[in-house]
Design a protein around this nucleic acid. Sequence first.
DNA 1: CGGGATCCTTACGGATACTG
DNA 2: CAGTATCCGTAAGGATCCCG
Lengths: 122, 122
Amino acid sequence: MSDGFDPELVPDARGATRRPEPECPVEVALAAISGRWTTLVLRELTAGPRSFGELRAALPTVSAKVLTDRLAELTRRGLVGKEVHAGFPTRTSYQLTTAGKRLRPLLVELYRTGAALLAETT
Amino acid sequence: MSDGFDPELVPDARGATRRPEPECPVEVALAAISGRWTTLVLRELTAGPRSFGELRAALPTVSAKVLTDRLAELTRRGLVGKEVHAGFPTRTSYQLTTAGKRLRPLLVELYRTGAALLAETT
DNA sequence: CGGGATCCTTACGGATACTG
DNA sequence: CAGTATCCGTAAGGATCCCG
């Protein structure tokens, strides 16, 4: 019943699809880190909780709309948690959830792989 | 001179950017696997060399244009090699280069992470 | 401070038809 | 067989202005 794929690459049936499926683990992971600025936001939050303004300060050229979009999507996926502290001015705090912290090894591997590719062509 | 980031996540200055930079290793790796169908094409080629038609047969609902686009981009990046065997009908063969094979651990990690995220919410 | 509401532009993916 | 050439709709990213 082999599907012809390396079992380490495709360990179970969910990865043996013939087209992009949102339920495929690879697509799930890609969706989590996809979108411009997303990995940078995750990098910031990996260092600890951050407010909206702190994120903007760390990433000065991201627009408010895009940052809001990224945080909303990450929150929707359960990767980031949001706390609003009442008062004026309003203070918020974004932080990685347990699920969000699971992205860490993937980010490390992204860096490793990218560095290897860069070294290859140089 | 710490930048405040975890040194495993951001091992050198190339990862300490304040906006998306094409030279950042993370962006390089993301670019390599980005685009719909790309990881599926890579999965097929990981199993061995494939012709254009074989790839279409394995991924029946991908259009010729998109498949061409993906193969051209992967080839341009030096991740995939192309051999054209003269004759009629024309036969081609696409295969992973040494650089392309370096994407394998990343694909494995994508699957692992995605599976972990799916397990988390279920 | 922390966004929401608009508007705009372009990049991407897909469908269809055709060619060496 | 292995693509190329067009055309098209959508969605993503970004700029600007406004509000609680």
